[in-house]
Structure formats: structure tokens, C-alpha cells
Design a protein around this nucleic acid. Sequence first.
DNA 1: TTATAAGAGTATAGCTACTAAACACATAGG
DNA 2: CCTATGTGTTTAGTAGCTATACTCTTATAA
Lengths: 152, 152
Amino acid sequence: MNDTRIHMIHERFRSVVALAVRLEQTPRSFGTDENLTSSEIHLIEIIGDNAEALSVTDLSKVLGVTKGAVSQNLKRTENKGLTLKIEDPQNSSRAIVKMTAKGKTAYFAHKHWHETMDGGFKEFFLNLKPERIDFLIDFLAKLETFLKKALM
Amino acid sequence: MNDTRIHMIHERFRSVVALAVRLEQTPRSFGTDENLTSSEIHLIEIIGDNAEALSVTDLSKVLGVTKGAVSQNLKRTENKGLTLKIEDPQNSSRAIVKMTAKGKTAYFAHKHWHETMDGGFKEFFLNLKPERIDFLIDFLAKLETFLKKALM
DNA sequence: TTATAAGAGTATAGCTACTAAACACATAGG
DNA sequence: CCTATGTGTTTAGTAGCTATACTCTTATAA
């Protein structure tokens, strides 16, 4: 039907994905003197969100990466003074990952940033008719299926 | 208003971005015996799309990366037997990047794959009312502005 | 009880993809 | 002719990951 319009959606979508990726991989400071990469702040986010004591293996399961990767990232956040590891009293082969005060500063600064972002997102949707929101959810779901299929 | 719905959109959007990224960084074979990464096939795509003779510097400008990066990537595609460099007869400090038959196979296989993808995309939109397409374009444009603002 | 298997964490090498800086040439302009 | 600019390569460094090999601890089973 209207090829130009469809092409516009395609192009805009590509642009949005590119922007989202760039946003994801731009290191930011989050209230401390250290610049944190996305995987570092992601680590901090998960440690802070979980009240239970998490081990390296726990983190690797939550993050969906190998424990080697978690070990490497924890070394960096530890060097930056954000996290530390203490020995599990019940199991000395296990380490429990904790946050320092500096780590908590970064955690809450990140949370606040997210709330601002989410707030902007929310405000945008408040003026939308419910059927449009339904349509958007449906569109994104179809897009998801489409991309999954493209991935074989 | 409806926080759960907005949260769903947010989550689905994150998932779609993650999938698009994974699709972008999964090496595929494109009709030859070699597996090509996204930057390799991207290089092939640009060489094939341009009838004019492109140099390393030209490619770096089109791709928006340093010429060092292009040089590195060309070495890999050359090792895989997809590209070759010939000396510019007008300027022996300049190299012209050409594709081999194998490179052209990959180029057309990739083009065909893209056409299939675009076709799927198109088909999805054919059943949509024009006002919904307008709404989608508007939504993506707003999302783009929002993300740009978030990037400072 | 002791041997072995399973689990936890680390270290290292390798990969993709990029930048920045230092090179080696070639060419153009004064 | 000599310097400045342009072209391409190489190397070191960064981020983020995997896979593999390794140590140490705990659990299990004969």
C-alpha cells in the first residue's frame, strides 16, 4: 500500500534501537567520582534489588552470563570501591557480594535516574487512549515474535 | 492511569531492543562457507551498494568509524576470501576495495535475506488502518526524541 | 573413612569491535 | 626541493564476553 510510510517506520525503528543501544553503553557517573559502564551499574542494580545474600554464581544466573564474567566485573567494581566480597559463614567456598556506602550511592542515584526516565515514559502514555496502548502492546509483541523468528 | 500496561510496554520494548541487538551480533553464513559477523557483512553491503570505487578512507567515512577499524575489518574479509584491495592507478597511495565472486555471493544472499525480512515487515503493516500507521510513526518519533534527551 | 564427584570462585587466553597514536609511504603545493 | 597533507597499516589499549583449566571446599557414596 504505502511503501514510504512503512519504510519510515522501519527506519525510525532502526534509529530507536541504535539510540537505546548507545544509551545502554554510555558510561555515566551516578553520584560518585567513578564512571560506571552499563554492566557495572547493572551488577550494582541487582545486588541492591536483592535483600538476600547473593554469591558470584547467583549473580551469574540472574545476569545470564558465566561466573567468570561476573568475577571479572566484580573485580572492577571492587577496584572502584563499590562492592566487596565476604566469606559465607556457612560455606567457606562461597563468597557473598556486598555493597559499600559508595556502591549504595551509585545504586540510589541510578534508581532515581530510572524513576525520572520511567516518569517521562509514563507521562507520554497518560494522554493516550486505552485502545492505542493495547495496540502498542500488540505491535511490540508481534515485533518480538518476528525478531525471534529471524533469529532462527 | 494504568501502570501495569505502561510497564508492559516498557518491558516489551526492552525485550525488542535486546532481540534486535542479538540479531545484529549473531554471525551468519550468507551462502558461503564462512560465518560473517555484522560488521563484516555491513562492509560487504556498502562495497556492493556503491558502484564507484571506494577506498579505505571512503569506507571509514560511510561507516562512521576510523580508517584503522576499516583496515582491520578488511583484513578479516580478505582472509575469508570476500574482498581484495587493488592499487588506484591514479594514486598509488590509495587502495580500491573490490569484492571477489565469493564476496558477491555473500552480498546477494544478504540482500535477499533483507528483502525477506522487509517483506515480513511490510505484510504486517498491510492490514493496519492508515491512522494506526501514523500513530506508530508518531510514537517512534517521540521515543526517539525521548532517548536523545536521555543521552543528554 | 576415605576417595571421588560436584560446586564455588579465579585466572588466562581468545574473540569482536572499536579508538588513538605512531608509523610508512605517496602526492600536492609553495 | 621540501614540507604539509592524505592514505593505509600496525600496535596497544578498552569493554565485554566465552571457554578452559585450575584451586579449594563441601557433599556423597562405598
